[in-house]
Design a protein around this nucleic acid. Structure first.
Lengths: 331, 331
DNA sequence: AACTAAAATGAAATCGTTAACAATTCTATT
DNA sequence: AATAGAATTGTTAACGATTTCATTTTAGTT
């Protein structure tokens, strides 16, 4: 293992000079720097990160925490997030991936081990973890779930507007009887999306039929169950907004099982635009939530926070977009 | 930041004793150990991993490398893999996730930074990376893709047998005209799965129709294209084996577009059992490749390798299983 | 040429831990 | 009570980098 001392010996300088030269310290004369860099390259020198970490107190590790990776359908989620982050992240940082539910000892979560933490949050159960991170003083950005706390950097999609736009689209096509399958109770995203749904109906002066508000929990199964209830209604809705794509897939399964044609007999709208939304039969019309962009932006904010710890926390919104495919027909 | 020296001062012993007590060294008297452990807990001591790493030359980092996370449909793949690994992995190890295609400087891949590396390999283009890791002497396990090299620890599914079993199932149901959409040319998995297909046809003494061998590349789009060709054939097959679920989904899309009913007019079999296979309409009959188990086993082998570097490399096979759902009808 | 300020380099301490070796304290035996 | 051997504990030096402070070299001015 080559160390800076080895390089120093060859270059005929002190190891201090080598350290400085290799770290871009401006005090070093160009000639010496060039020489040292050449020798370092020739000797295949690679810095020892443990030693670096010990003295600089930086770990070169960024932690990405999901609510859970053991359960839930967050598959494309995880991939898109990692994609976005690695896209931005400097190569000599390491990105670690964990489920919050897998963290048994909070003592492992401290500044010494993580230079910064990104939380891809799906549930308010993450709060305990989030506040631990905050208390420990680790630079933190929370993604995907809107926080009430303005002291924490937060990047989320503008769900409400996105949903409104989608429902407007259906209304414009003539739908008057619209139903919603709601997300998991207690989740901010659930109420935001419901609000968007209501915004549109109210703006369009459409009646609100209590039978058309069905609760779900974001799982495929709950989408199936909820849709079954809607299909059994005497006065069926003509279009159904599912608060996420997973439930929309469950809903499509229910339609298939009940031999109800989508979109001829009933229209369907999802939310998220997961990878498979494009490949359902028929292809799902949905609201795209740009997880990769959210992650990129979050990582960018985190880097900013690392470089300038005094940066003020903000709440950033990323725009969603309506993806029109084949599950919405004229009302 | 509490260090062992702080604890030593309070306990009235030397820091060496503290180090030993906290690391389970048997030389320490039970009474002193208990006392030190109590004090450490009271003071909320957490070891400094950088310092530990520096002297023990272990990084406490396990690297998980995918062929790519930027492209490809390996979404559920990634999740299942991480799931399996974190399930086994000790909490004071960190798991980092990377795409091999994202590694620009091989110099970052060395023993100093990774205690061990798992490669979830999908392509033989990974070989350069794999051999770099091997050359560096980093404990290594390659998952998912069968290697020719017996000097590398390798965990894979027994694709060939799995496919044979699935095709046997279709043959048993009366199918005589079977087609295959092949995987990406050059991939070991492609030829293995094709072999399983052939094994079954040959065992069943069925004719091999060259028109029924269509090439694909594991992408949804290639599945769509390949299926379209099959559907345009004068003498259509009655059942089609798709070398992975993604292509099966593409194939289903093609059937839907051509208004061909699955399974009434044509039967479909996939491979992998990705999460969405269960939720296609109709639900896809497929061969389950247990990625989580492969990953768990791989991680177990890696731990073994860390503890006993002299462990002989092996090639381990994990059993696949046929998942019968609704895309295969009687022939 | 002498002198001074600026620029470049070096010496030594430090980060928190483990490990080799030395020193001390027990325990049991005589 | 002395003593050997085992059982514990302590001293000191690493590990490979950065950083503070001191020193040397260089360049500019008179």
């Amino acid at each position: 293992m080559i160390t800076i001392k080895d390089i120093a010996r060859v270059a005929g300088v002190s190891h201090t000079t080598v350290s400085r030269a290799l770290n871009g310290n401006p005090l070093i004369k160009k000639a010496t720097r060039d020489k040292i860099e050449r020798i370092a390259a020739e000797m295949n020198y690679v810095p020892n990160y443990s030693a670096k970490s010990l003295v600089t107190k930086r770990s070169f590790i960024i932690g990405l925490f999901f609510s859970s990776i053991e359960q839930g359908t967050s598959a494309s989620f995880l991939v898109d997030a990692i994609k976005g982050i690695t896209h931005i992240l400097d190569e000599n940082y390491n990105l670690t991936v964990n489920g919050i539910d897998g963290v048994r000892h909070y003592s492992n979560i401290q500044p010494q081990r993580f230079d910064g933490i990104l939380v891809m949050s799906q549930s308010d159960e993450d709060n305990a973890f989030i506040y631990h991170v905050k208390k420990m003083g680790i630079p933190l950005v929370v993604l995907n779930r809107q926080l009430e706390d303005p002291s924490i950097m937060n990047v989320v999609a503008n769900d409400r507007e996105g949903v409104k736009e989608a429902i407007d689209h259906a209304v414009q096509l003539g739908h008057r009887k619209l139903a919603i399958i709601e997300g998991k109770p207690g989740f901010k995203s659930s109420s935001e999306r419901k609000q968007g749904f209501l915004d549109s109906l109210i703006a369009g002066r459409l009646p609100l039929n209590p039978e058309y508000f069905i609760s779900g929990d974001y799982s495929i199964e709950s989408g199936y169950a909820a849709m079954s209830r809607l299909l059994n209604l005497e006065d069926r809705p003509t279009a159904v907004f599912c608060s996420n794509d997973d439930m929309a897939i469950g809903a499509m399964n229910a339609c298939y099982a009940h031999k109800v044609d989508v979109p001829e007999q009933i229209s369907l709208i999802g939310f998220d635009d997961i990878m498979f939304a494009r490949y359902t039969n028929p292809a799902l019309t949905t609201v795209r939530k740009p997880i990769a962009e959210i992650s990129e932006l979050g990582m960018t904010m985190l880097i900013q926070l690392l470089q300038q710890p005094e940066t003020l926390p903000q709440q950033l919104f990323v725009k969603t977009s309506l993806v029109v495919r084949d599950t919405v027909a004229g009302g």
